[in-house]
Design a protein around this nucleic acid. Structure first.
Lengths: 342, 342
DNA sequence: TTGAAAGCGTTACCAG
DNA sequence: CTGGTAACGCTTTCAA
């Protein structure tokens, strides 16, 4: 089956290719009328012929000629993590609603891969990029900005960049909120298990934790354990067990993957929350409600984060100034942080 | 910053655009040598100039001229389900390894949306499509085949189509395997909770269940409860509670989302497995290991499914005949299907 | 409101 | 091995 081009439609409708192009690109206004400088009847005929012939726009040609692609790239740090699994559909829906396609490709927390992925999407003429930077990616993203392509930082900030859009969680607040909850329930020896990723979201959550401890004059008791993706599995168990031995009463984990691993350790060692140790976890999971004692956790407004990131990007594509949006986390109370019975 | 074109490189390297094109498209052979009809020294110079100038191929132009795009589309039925969340990275990695980009876009189990999504990817000149059809999508996908674009059906079969590639789980076997496990542990009144989606994978899993029941002369006891996405939440609870009242000893759920909802119901009603009711679930989840009594479940070979679907598609793109690949499920034994103590 | 014609940057074809 | 040149299908002036 031969591809139907704009010429075929033009010939069949007895008009010029220009008119067909006009009609095919016209947006409908509020009344459903075509908003273009074409006679309504002509437009209708063109539209009718186009559908009858099964015309499909050739994207490559349009993109080549116009320099635009109506496509945005989304580069998560890790496509299989909870945060992005949850947010991607909101991004896609909002993008589609605004007339953009979405190209997903993950950097896997690897700056080299980030660079390769960005080259690939640039070759695709994407109109803008939403990216969750990985550690070591600052310069790579700065290069992007030099290219004058609109960029929105999602989830993770790069302080030194200010000509980019930003849609972030109030990470400091998240750390403060989680820690305060534990402190208010009477726990004093509250520690944190975090990743040493060199990423703003983690360091901000850590600062929030320190802030909450400091506000209660417990700064001397504050302790942050750092682990890495690679070593987390083995290290978390000893952090928890040694901690309990040292009298730690509660732990706060600033990401879902840390939370999941802590829950696994607790389960393996038959430790209960909050009786043996209280915890506050991060992000949503159906796992949390399965505990007889449900799990207290911080949730991020995924829908708003996703939609806003697209909105900010599209505004930038349309020439507006980059916006910076900080959204508030929410604490969902469960049993795992309840005050211990005396 | 102006875009560097193949012409700029040609001028700077004192060669024709043709040569630059040759060099940029040359694949390296096993020895790392450029495999193209260009003098090695010239090629090296071109390559050097290209990187120095920061040349990036304009994808749209290449695609327009060649008709190819080195891009494949992947259309899951639901991007947030466990199966696709797990398989997408394998698809992406394999595609990248074979030199293809991947365009993801979900049909959300909606034929209209499937049609729209397919139009969109066709406009992108994709070289091939991997799709998990949704109910009512048969004709839409058949139309695709008429277009002579390579199509691979993943996860869900459409019997009437045979000029497409297929990469499927042996769903009958999965149903048989799950049911047999329960029967062998001494359970007799085993029922199934399924979706009425009109999708091959579910109906095959149901047939496997019936097969296992029949083989043990328990066909008269066989019963399949059907629910829908929309109504599952409310219906599953009564199916389980009424079931237990009626003396049902075990349930098999042929998808993760059903499994998760059943687990939630059991938890809510303080029912234990296998003491109150034995179960076999589907797909992998970190939830399963959290039960004091771990959960028996069927796992699909996600990595192989993902990689094979790309391989089969790429072979079709290269002109080979479509292959049909059926992979075996595996049963992971947990406590939830253990024989009850007398 | 309509149409002619000039490219966009590449690849493919054909010559040398 | 190398180079000239014609498309690919569309958008975008510019002129009518």
């Amino acid at each position: 089956m031969k591809r139907i081009t704009i010429r075929d439609v033009a010939r069949e409708a007895n008009v010029s290719v220009t008119l067909v192009s006009f009609v095919m690109n016209a947006k409908r206004d509020a009344d459903g009328n075509l908003n273009c400088p074409v006679n309504a009847d002509t437009a209708k005929r063109v539209l009718e012929v186009a559908t009858r012939l099964g015309y499909k726009r050739n994207f490559a040609a349009a993109s080549l000629r116009s320099g635009r692609s109506n496509t945005i790239a989304v580069i998560p740090n890790d496509i299989s993590n909870k945060f992005f699994a949850g947010i991607s559909r909101y991004i896609e829906d909002k993008a589609k609603a605004l007339g953009y396609n979405v190209l997903f490709s993950s950097s896997e927390e690897d700056p080299n891969r980030l660079s390769a992925v960005l080259d690939a999407v640039m070759a695709h003429n994407v109109d803008g990029i939403i990216v969750a930077p990985c550690a070591g990616g600052d310069e790579i993203i700065a290069r992007l900005v030099d290219y004058k392509i609109p960029v929105v930082l999602l989830d993770r900030d790069i302080d030194s960049l200010d000509s980019v859009g930003k849609v972030l969680l109030d990470d400091w607040e998240a750390g403060y909120l989680a820690t305060s909850e534990l402190l208010e329930q009477g726990y004093k020896k509250v520690e944190m298990i975090s990743y040493s990723l060199g990423i703003s979201s983690f360091s901000e959550r850590e600062s929030g934790y320190i802030g909450a401890m400091t506000d209660r004059s417990l700064k001397t008791k504050a302790k942050i354990h750092h682990t890495t993706y690679a070593k987390a599995a083995e290290e978390i168990e000893s952090i928890i067990l040694n901690g309990i031995e040292r009298g730690v009463e509660a732990f706060f984990m600033p990401s879902y993957s840390l939370s999941a691993q802590v829950l696994a350790v607790l389960k393996k060692n038959n430790l209960r929350t909050p009786e043996d140790v209280a915890i506050v976890c991060f992000d949503e999971s159906d796992v949390y409600s399965l505990y007889s004692n449900t799990i207290t956790h911080i949730v991020q407004p995924l829908k708003i984060l996703g939609e806003k990131s697209v909105e900010v990007l599209v505004e930038m594509i349309e020439g507006k100034a980059p916006e910076k949006i900080i959204l508030s986390p929410e604490l969902i109370r469960g049993g795992s942080s309840e005050a211990r019975k005396k």
